[in-house]
Design a protein around this nucleic acid. Structure first.
Length: 228
DNA sequence: AGACGCGACCAAGGTTCGTT
DNA sequence: AACGAACCTTGGTCGCGTCT
């Protein structure tokens, strides 16, 4: 008999505001030391240690000791996806009286390690429209023309058989409430676009991305996405 | 004299324990 | 859950002795 997954205990780990702040601080995929996470969450080092210990024992965070520092990171992209999936519910539970649709995060951001926000959704839509991706129930399939397009850009489209991570996956965008491309391919695409200078990380917000002038031109040339 | 190794010391990051 | 105090671990610096 297959036991039901213990959803309650995982949800309980995320339910405490301080722990939620810590998880949000790690959403962009980097590792951070305990002290930095404590400051981010507005906690004392002792309190942060207690929370971090629970998150590690709950399997949400991984601890990597390095000298006198102890770095924490999300155990897997699935943790980030879970947090991302909770965000629409968090927004609906606490509606803002003054919605700000043009916030940088809503326009373009990184969701753990792939592209999200309006741009992430627009790009995924364009890839499907162009016939580069075919949408399945839970993921996307790369078509031959898509393989050639990704290959021209230098994005690897061959799944690594050793990797346990999904090659593509449909990731629900919390701000757009629509799906964007995640998984290994989504991560590789974001990395390529950053390397190519199409996208740049915002200096004001860790997860926010901005599209460069070159990026705007290339988006139009490749995918006919008009972006201002 | 300069290079090197070793140990003492201090500062910083992090954890444990007791308490509120 | 959070705080203060004590403690542990580690990295960096400095001084000293030895070797070339």
């Amino acid at each position: 008999m297959i036991e039901d997954p213990d959803v309650a205990s995982v949800a309980g780990l995320m339910a405490v505001p301080a722990r939620a702040e810590i998880l949000l601080a790690l959403m962009h995929g980097q590792s951070r030391p305990a002290g930095e996470l404590a400051r981010f969450a507005g906690l004392s080092p002792q309190a942060a240690t207690a929370h971090l210990k629970k998150l590690v024992s709950g399997g949400l965070l991984t601890l990597v000791p390095s000298g006198r520092h102890r770095y924490y990171c999300l155990t897997s992209p699935e943790v980030a996806h879970a947090i991302e999936a909770l965000m629409p519910l968090a927004r609906s539970a606490r509606p803002s009286p003054h919605p700000k649709p043009t916030q940088p995060l809503q326009k373009a951001r990184s969701c753990y390690d792939h592209l999200a926000g309006q741009l992430g959704v627009a790009m995924t839509d364009a890839l499907v429209r162009k016939g580069y991706l075919i949408e399945n129930e839970r993921d996307y399939r790369v078509t031959p023309s898509g393989e050639s397009w990704f290959c021209d850009l230098g994005v690897n489209t061959q799944p690594d058989p050793r990797s346990r991570r999904a090659f593509t996956r449909k990731c629900l965008d919390w701000s757009e409430r629509r799906y964007h491309l995640g998984g290994v391919l989504g991560a590789a695409m974001l990395e390529t676009f950053l390397d190519a200078g199409w996208l740049a990380r915002s200096s004001s917000h860790r997860r926010a991305l901005r599209i460069t002038h070159a990026g705007q031109a290339e988006l139009w040339r490749h995918l006919e996405i008009e972006w201002r």
